[in-house]
Design a protein around this nucleic acid. Sequence first.
DNA 1: TATTGTTATACTCTATAACTATA
DNA 2: TATAGTTATAGAGTATAACAATA
Lengths: 149, 149
Amino acid sequence: MRAQANDQALVEVKELGASIRSAVAKLYRRFRIERGDGDLGDVASEVLAVLCKTGPQTLKGLSDFQRVTPASMSQVVNRLTSAGYARRDADPEDGRRVIFSATDAGRELFLADRALRHAWFDAQLVGLSEPDRAAVLRVATILSEIAES
Amino acid sequence: MRAQANDQALVEVKELGASIRSAVAKLYRRFRIERGDGDLGDVASEVLAVLCKTGPQTLKGLSDFQRVTPASMSQVVNRLTSAGYARRDADPEDGRRVIFSATDAGRELFLADRALRHAWFDAQLVGLSEPDRAAVLRVATILSEIAES
DNA sequence: TATTGTTATACTCTATAACTATA
DNA sequence: TATAGTTATAGAGTATAACAATA
């Protein structure tokens, strides 16, 4: 117990920051490797997943959530709509807004894509101990909150 | 204690995978926001950091570590050498190899860049409780190992 | 005036394919 | 033949700036 407390006290924030930055960067790029051949890019896939899981969204909603500028997101959804995986609809309540939603083809792609892209990582998680898995879950929440701050 | 065990048992690997994937993607992009104006890109900055902290590296060493192809890494270091932040040297023991190392200007940029880019995240980490910080440290290690597998 | 979204442009990052040079 | 590195090319992702339309 005392040893653990000492370990925690030894955690240098600067080193911790460097560790998690490095881990996040490597894992982000590692995820990119696990993708299908005819696939969309990784951000477009994530946006499609949001549309499928959370339902229709405005452009601003999508860009805020993914932490990119509206201009960037506009181009991502442009690829999705051009490919027929998403569609634009006017918002009847606010003429400035556009509602983006997944098409049937988009939902199909999402399901296939998810199976493919997540299989590798899910297999890694299964190999963890219960406490480690709980730690990963807790830290996922922590990091999400930090990312949104 | 039993409640905690139940919570852990409830952890669905698929949901856990989706959570950490989402957190990693958002945090990766959040990191990109915290950068200087005249800055290099984020990958080039990381490579420069590796050269400064770990010492000279071959191209293959760098590309393996960052999980990109040698061709991709070649272009990243090209920008670094063109800008005068890194240099190429022949390996006297193997004529095929090139040893990349940071220049003085590179080390200077690294220090300024690190202060700038890490400040925001370090501040977030300081706000965490000790157990949370320990969990983040543990999970950084777990995720790094997964990324390298 | 403020908000929502788009387009134009440019840069970073990445990959595949084809290549050179060395082991 | 195999390995280390490069270049050419193409596409994804991002940002800033300038813009149109609506609130």
